[in-house]
């Protein structure tokens, strides 16, 4: 549980960060809250000869709610999200999900940027970002570029981010309608056995828009377009929910681990989605 020796860099600005990244390529990693990367280094599962601490870099934290657009800096902690009144008003699903991440001590350190950029399929924010159709803002030697959350994840710990890029912010439109983040876990602090992020818009008695994403049920987060489509145009009745669940089950690919066999995970995923849809529809 002792990491291999590494060089510790603490640049004052993004130019300094990028300089180290450009020089060392995949031998360098940025450090945000450290709750994924540092345990991996201590287990010697991640070999990081150059660690770049982002905490002295200005402009990476903070939440802005500007009209209908929300931007959250990468170094914003989950605790910051939970405590931000305007964000809770504009996108209450962010607060509901953040309260289910790890435990209060971790949430004081854990950041949005780290959570989405690490590519850990167990993390809650990637699925949530896909559900919100968020945009990730990356900065590299060639400047800034944007990637949709739904296009960002390739495999476990593999993302669209280049080795010399830093994810600096996430941005998304304030969602309307009903929402729910439902998560089954074994204990406080655990990753999800199954989790579902659901956003539903109600028009009269009919669902006019639906977005559904699942967490820790594949090697990437799963935004199930088909599951959402199954609800759109319906009154979210039993048949529609069955169809949405069936569609979601077609999109996930869980593996067996200590949380249980595949059959159980598929069952749990179905239950969690049903509950999330019910709660979101109730709030819509």
């Amino acid at each position: 549980m002792i990491p291999a020796a590494f060089e510790y860099h603490r640049p004052k600005d993004m130019a300094g960060v990028l300089a180290v990244l450009v020089e060392h390529g995949d031998e360098a990693r940025v450090l945000a809250g450290g709750h994924s990367l540092i345990p991996m280094m201590k287990l010697r599962m991640a070999d990081v000869p150059h660690l770049i601490d982002l905490q002295d870099v200005d402009g990476l934290s903070g939440i802005t709610v500007d009209g209908g657009r929300i931007r959250i800096g990468a170094m914003t902690t989950q605790s910051d999200i939970i405590g931000h009144a305007a964000l809770a008003e504009a996108a209450p699903i962010m607060r509901e999900a953040s309260l289910q991440i790890a435990d209060p001590q971790v949430r004081y350190m854990g950041t949005v940027g780290g959570n989405v950029a690490n590519g850990d399929p167990g993390n809650d924010m990637p699925g949530l970002m896909q559900c919100l159709d968020a945009t990730f803002i990356l900065v590299g030697p060639d400047g800034e570029r944007e990637v949709q959350a739904r296009d960002f994840y390739e495999a476990a710990y593999m993302t669209d981010r280049e080795d010399d890029e830093v994810l600096v912010a996430v941005a998304f439109d304030a969602p309307s309608g009903g929402y729910a983040y439902e998560k089954q876990k074994r204990k406080i602090g655990d990753y999800a056995t199954a989790a579902a992020a659901v956003l539903l818009v109600k028009d009269g008695d009919t669902c006019s828009s639906a977005s559904i994403a699942m967490t820790n049920l594949s090697d990437t987060p799963v935004w199930s377009e088909a599951a959402g489509d199954a609800l759109v145009g319906t009154s979210v009745d039993a048949a529609a929910i069955d169809a949405a669940v069936a569609a979601m089950l077609g999109d996930i690919d869980p593996t067996q681990d200590n949380r249980g066999p595949i059959e159980f995970k598929r069952h749990a995923a179905a239950m969690i989605l049903r509950r999330a849809i019910a709660r979101a529809w109730d709030r819509a």
């Binding site: 089954q184 056995t193 949380r259 249980g260 159980f264």
Partner: peptide
């Protein structure tokens, strides 16, 4: 009696 084993017990009893 963790979640999956309880679920498995219920499943074997035909409760799903």
């Amino acid at each position: 009696h963790d979640h999956w084993r309880i679920w498995q017990t219920a499943n074997k009893l035909g409760l799903h």
